[in-house]
Nucleic acid binder design. Structure first.
Length: 455
DNA sequence: TGAAATGTTGGGGCG
DNA sequence: ACGCCCCAACATTTC
């Protein structure tokens, strides 16, 4: 048998159902398709960087046999199948609207050629189709989704480990990763090189290191951006350099405690995001709660720019935005605070924030990003109520008491007494840091008034 | 996975 | 010794 193996969002050698099953007793052609033809939203710049290095790493595991294509999945696969006498095509089971459409069209095309298309769920612990309320409808609230839905279902599949010896089918194709245009000529991303090692081994190492210690302080520690109680696995999970099935079972093997259970539930917030996008695809660019459709956003260009650059004059916000820009990552607590600030204090549409994160985050995940922003904006399903407005000053004082995080990204504030780290306007000492772009108190008030109009 | 406003309680100062 | 006021400290409600 000659099998075509299509990689998409699970760029790993281990625990990969597509590669594992697709390579059994067969010759394979492993390919990656950058489909910018059938999708509405192209990858963000940071994601492309991550993708580039993930592919390079995967290619090494595949003894340099990975082939790269860009364009329309259907045409590319049809062409390959015919030219190489392919019998079966193995791919990832799709869960997002665009991907489902591609899958269906591909299936139709391959059926007409009398070729099997075999989908395997690589990405989610539970298929969204199988987790429903008793009345047959989808959950909208995380806790019952997780506790009564997921955890009451049969256990997720075990991780598969390594595939057997791979036999690569010889082809005449010469493809190059460079044709995917993932890396800009302008070397803006070099700052990431020293911060992130992008490979499957590194993902596993990080996970193991996390399980060796930090996880035992996860529940409390996860809220403090200066502590290292987070696994920082998100970008690795995003492109499947580690499988959630592996993560799930490694955690299950351990003696359960409150921290491990909390980490598991966080892993399942990602599941929940995919679940929501699957059952309510309109939320990709519309408010889950329709009453927000008539909400009047200010969308001030100037304020949006200040937010993006980390020049709002609110240190905790600015530190977060600088972390994002410099590292391609932002601590979860800070993500909530900067999102609340953009939406509720600046009255800027969550979709604009979502776009910026999409472009800047190495872990930018289609579902998590949208669901996360809708959550933070208060427009989402199981969302923080709109009137729950984070105070960036208090949040900074509470979760970065020592100033370690804030001052790392805003060293100019080290000039001030520690007490004033979050309120640098309360002194005349000039440290070359911007004045607040808004008055916090009155912005809060007008946000609540604006909300009253649609309530 | 809030924060601010408002309400309640109880100890201490003081006439 | 007593009542009154003040105001933390905590609890509850509201946004």
């Amino acid at each position: 048998m000659n099998n075509l193996i299509i990689f998409k969002n699970n760029l790993r050698f281990n625990d990969n159902p597509v590669l594992y099953h697709g390579s059994r007793g067969s010759n394979i052609i492993p390919i990656y398709i950058y489909d910018n033809y059938n999708v509405e939203k192209d990858l963000g710049a940071a994601s492309k960087y991550w993708l580039y290095h993930s592919l390079k790493s995967l290619n090494i595991s595949l003894d340099n046999n990975l082939q790269y294509f860009k364009g329309n999945t259907i045409d590319i696969v049809e062409n390959l199948v015919i030219k190489n006498s392919i019998n079966r095509v193995f791919c990832e089971q799709p869960f997002l609207e665009d991907d489902i459409k591609i899958y269906k069209n591909l299936k139709k095309k391959l059926q007409s050629l009398n070729i099997d298309l075999k989908p395997y769920n690589c990405s989610l612990l539970w298929d969204p189709n199988t987790v429903l309320k008793n009345d047959g409808t989808a959950y909208k609230v995380f806790t019952p989704y997780y506790k009564n839905g997921c955890l009451m279902r049969p256990n997720p599949d075990f991780p598969l480990g390594r595939p057997d010896k791979l036999n690569f089918l010889k082809t005449n194709n010469i493809t190059s990763i460079d044709n995917l245009d993932l890396i800009d000529k302008f070397n803006w991303y070099k700052k990431f090189n020293s911060l992130w090692k992008i490979s499957e081994d590194e993902a596993l190492n990080r996970f193991k290191k996390f399980l060796d210690g930090p996880v035992y302080n996860y529940k409390k520690g996860r809220d403090f951006p200066a502590s290292d109680s987070n696994s920082k696995l998100s970008p690795y999970i995003r492109f499947g350099l580690i499988s959630v099935h592996r993560i799930w079972y490694e955690l299950k093997k351990m003696k359960s405690n409150i921290d491990i259970e909390h980490y598991k539930s966080e892993i399942c917030w990602r599941e929940f995001s995919y679940y929501l996008l699957y059952h309510f695809p309109y939320i990709k660019n519309n408010n889950f709660q329709k009453k927000f459709d008539s909400f009047k956003w200010n969308n001030s260009k100037e304020n949006f720019e200040s937010w993006k650059k980390g020049e709002t004059g609110f240190p905790f916000i600015d530190a977060g935005m600088k972390e994002l820009w410099q590292t391609g990552y932002m601590h979860n607590r800070v993500r909530m605070v900067v999102a609340s600030f953009l939406v509720k204090n600046l009255l800027i549409d969550w979709r604009l924030g979502e776009k910026w994160f999409w472009d800047c985050l190495l872990d930018a995940d289609y579902a998590s990003n949208i669901a996360g922003w809708q959550w933070a904006a208060g427009t989402g399903a199981d969302a923080a109520p709109y009137f729950r407005i984070f105070n960036p000053i208090l949040q900074g004082q509470k979760f970065d008491k020592s100033g370690k995080y804030t001052l790392y990204y805003l060293p100019e504030l080290k000039k001030l007494p520690l007490k004033l780290t979050q309120t640098p306007w309360e002194t005349d000492i000039n440290c070359n840091y911007p004045k607040p772009i808004i008055d916090y108190k009155s912005s809060r008030k007008s946000a609540l008034e604006r909300y009253n109009e649609i309530r």
